[in-house]
């Protein structure tokens, strides 16, 4: 049995516990022994991306204290993983984004059948997951198509995957950008949503709740029926 540490992004811990629970249960269903270090907080990305990486030393140290003993650290966020990999000098083990851990390490080739009504979804790749961690190919490059998240979602029955007109345009969240450039951020989010709305999706599914929190905020303001879901929530078998 593979022993992994679950790294839960701070905003997921506080606002989206269901996503962390789904991630935990999914990993357990796939045969992992999952440890959740109690004193984990934040990876430090909010400070670093705002130009205050030097203020993130406390977070770097805390991450080391909580995760230092593990070979595999799994996190349901591409953005946090990218930050830790690129900017935490104290990182020792391997830190994985959930989808890449499933496709590359566990090499998941099958998932339980999903019950319930068929779902029409649009995938929202986070830029940090896509371009930063290379979780999928990108439209900028001349390269063969691939998508780790899509490959996993295709293992679940009853999911109809749609592609937005601009497949990998940023949603406009951007960390503190979402408040320092509020008007631009909201406009980018509205435009991103319009591309999914044109596909008449039920869910917008992504690997980063930060993008989805931003998109959800606009959806609720628009009183749209579309829901956002973390990919873990679709991959986990709720019947178990």
């Amino acid at each position: 049995m593979m022993r992994v540490a679950l790294f839960v992004p701070c905003y997921v811990d506080q606002f989206y516990p269901a996503v962390a629970i789904a991630t935990l249960e999914l990993l357990e269903q796939l045969g992992c022994q999952v440890v959740v270090p109690r004193n984990q907080t934040c990876c430090g990305q909010p400070m670093a991306n705002s130009g205050f990486a030097r203020e993130a030393a406390g977070c770097d140290q805390n991450f080391r204290q909580n995760f230092g003993e593990f070979d595999h650290i799994v996190c349901p966020s591409g953005s946090c993983v990218l930050h830790v990999r690129e900017h935490n000098p104290l990182l020792t083990g391997q830190v994985w984004e959930l989808c890449e851990f499933l496709t590359d390490v566990l090499q998941v080739r099958a998932l339980p059948h999903r019950s319930g009504r068929p779902l029409r979804i649009g995938i929202h790749q986070s830029c940090h997951g896509q371009r930063g961690l290379r979780l999928s190919s990108m439209s900028e490059r001349n390269e063969p198509y691939f998508s780790k998240m899509e490959a996993l979602l295709k293992l679940v029955d009853g999911i109809d995957i749609t592609t937005p007109a601009r497949p990998d345009e940023c949603c406009g969240f951007g960390g503190t950008f979402c408040v320092t450039q509020e008007a631009l951020s909201v406009k980018m989010g509205k435009d991103r949503l319009a591309q999914h709305q044109a596909n008449q999706v039920d869910y917008i599914v992504g690997g980063d709740m930060s993008c989805l929190m931003h998109l959800e905020g606009i959806l609720r303001r628009q009183q749209s029926p579309i829901q956002v879901r973390h990919v873990a929530q679709l991959l986990v078998d709720h019947a178990l």
Partner: peptide, 28 residues
């Protein structure tokens, strides 16, 4: 709150994941 100008805030859950975990699972 600049977030609130064009977006709703996320609905805050009654407990965080950490709190859920403490109640439902034993810490290692």
């Amino acid at each position: 709150n600049p977030w609130y100008k064009g977006r709703d805030m996320p609905s805050p859950p009654t407990q965080s994941f950490g709190e859920w975990y403490d109640k439902n699972r034993s810490r290692v």
